[in-house]
Design a protein around this nucleic acid. Structure first.
Length: 468
DNA sequence: TTGGCTCACACT
DNA sequence: CAGTGTGAG
């Protein structure tokens, strides 16, 4: 559930940058013949043409949606190009997109605090950079600055294309006295420049929102897509939120948003204003209640984290319907594959980023054959993570067996597994300075204290070989 | 077949 | 702390 954070006293300049149909762009860069064409990226072509995970804007024009299957997309857009996600170890392999995302992050991190929010989104805190610009090149004077800012859509201003530049100019001039708007304008200029750099250096376009907090920046980053940006002046916030459907707000897309509609009759964020803080707290608890009260007023103190890398690595696969796994042998086979990929990913994280993961977690979904016990869930299990593909595979299988025992509760009915995943988490930087990474591992890694009751002491796996 | 595969986070 | 649930894209 969302939680309210102590608010910011000083105005910040926050940007949310969102890559346009990112997987499609990655594939278009790889195969330029796809540029400008209706294109979608699909995974697993066998069942109904595979599921779409990204759709180009040309294809969207034909009504192609992300929730469609490949077959359906072909129906509404016969000329669509369907590109398959790469497959490795018999599963979708997203590494191509992960590394493309890293290219983008590396550029966007150059102007301020940068938080990788997902494979194709980042938040930036540009407060310092914007203040700096305001001191050195106030955006009232140089014509060039206007031209840059003119690339933005300004929320609350008419965004008639031919009038856009004039509108921006009017906004900046009118706001002579408004320091906060000027900071935002500088932020918009910086973001416009960053987006140009991203395009030049990666060939990818992106869209962005610029506002005084993360919530507002995120809300508008997708408002003008593709390859555009939108600014939220404080003066336009209340009108904007007043008519915003609750479900559009981040965190309100699910059950909480439904509850607001069904239980309180709240249809827009503006509707929230008629409830007292106390009423909202009574309904949803003190944390969520105050959070709701604040967002209705455009207040969000959430900070941009300084983090360019993910906090966990996971590999998973589903086995729907007839593909369900029915015995330990097939589970072991798939688990080995998933662990192989996971091992490779954490190993490269260690080599490239000097980070080490401490926990291995196994998730599964299961049903019991013939029986009506659909409610019962397969429990997640975790243990200290030992590096080395063989060890991870071994530990993951032990976690599975342990979870299966709990799941079956000593009954001996048949079972089927419909999804499996392994995750490496609790990732820490290895203290730099001493080059003795291996000694660090010896002293601090779980390898020194295996949590899995280890009956079969395993021969040493030399897979740390490429660490200096 | 609740689109698949990832991620993050709050709660207990 | 390990494990559960929600939510996002």
């Amino acid at each position: 559930m969302p939680v309210a954070r102590p608010e910011q006293q000083q105005p910040r300049v926050i940007a949310h940058v969102d890559m346009d149909c990112f997987y499609v762009q990655v594939e278009q860069r790889r195969n330029p013949a796809l540029r400008g064409q209706p294109t979608a990226v699909v995974q697993y072509n066998d069942w109904k043409g595979g599921g779409l995970i990204a759709v180009s804007y040309e294809a969207r024009g034909f009504g192609v949606k992300r929730s469609m299957r490949g077959d359906e997309a072909k129906r509404v857009c016969p000329g669509i190009n369907l590109v398959q996600v790469p497959v490795a170890r018999d599963k979708a392999d997203l590494n191509l997109y992960r590394s493309a995302g890293s290219e983008v992050v590396a550029i966007l991190a150059s102007k301020g605090k940068c938080e990788r929010a997902s494979i194709d989104e980042v938040y930036l805190d540009l407060t310092d950079a914007a203040k700096e610009m305001l001191l050195q090149a106030p955006p009232d004077s140089p014509e060039e600055i206007f031209m840059e800012a003119a690339k933005s859509n300004i929320l609350g201003l008419p965004s008639d294309a031919s009038e856009k530049e004039k509108n921006v100019r009017a906004w900046l001039c009118r706001s002579d006295a408004d320091y906060q708007d000027k900071l935002l304008a500088c932020g918009a200029i910086i973001v416009a420049q960053l987006r140009v750099r991203v395009l030049e250096e990666t060939q990818f376009t992106c869209s962005a929102g610029i506002a005084h907090n993360k919530m507002l920046a995120k809300l508008v980053s997708g408002m003008h897509k593709p390859a555009q940006q939108t600014v939220v002046p404080s003066s336009s916030v209340q009108d904007f939120l007043a008519s915003l459907p609750v479900k559009k707000m981040k965190q309100l897309g699910g059950k909480l948003g439904s509850s607001l509609q069904d239980d309180l009759g709240v249809e827009t964020i503006g509707d929230l204003l008629s409830f007292t803080k106390e009423k909202l707290q009574e309904q949803y608890g003190v944390n969520t209640g105050t959070w709701l009260w604040k967002i209705a007023r455009g207040i969000s103190g959430e900070e941009v984290e300084d983090r360019l890398l993910p906090k966990s690595h996971g590999c998973g696969k589903t086995f729907p319907g007839p593909k369900a796994l029915k015995n330990s042998t097939s589970v072991k086979g798939w688990l080995d594959q998933l662990c192989d990929e996971l091992s490779e990913r954490i190993q490269s994280d260690l080599n490239q980023n000097k980070r080490i993961a401490q926990t291995l977690t196994l998730h599964a979904r299961a049903s019991k054959e013939n029986e009506r016990d659909l409610a019962k869930k397969f429990p997640s299990k975790s243990c200290p993570l030992r590096y080395g593909t063989g060890k991870i595979q071994e530990d993951a299988m032990k976690l599975f067996e342990s979870g299966l025992q709990d799941f079956l509760e000593s009954q001996n009915t048949g079972w089927i597994i419909t999804s499996l995943s392994v995750t490496a988490s609790k990732i820490f930087d290895i203290p730099s300075g001493t080059s003795s990474i291996l000694r660090y591992i010896k002293g601090h890694s779980p390898a020194a204290s295996p949590a899995i009751p280890d009956s079969s002491s395993v021969p040493e796996d030399p897979s740390l070989g490429d660490v200096p």
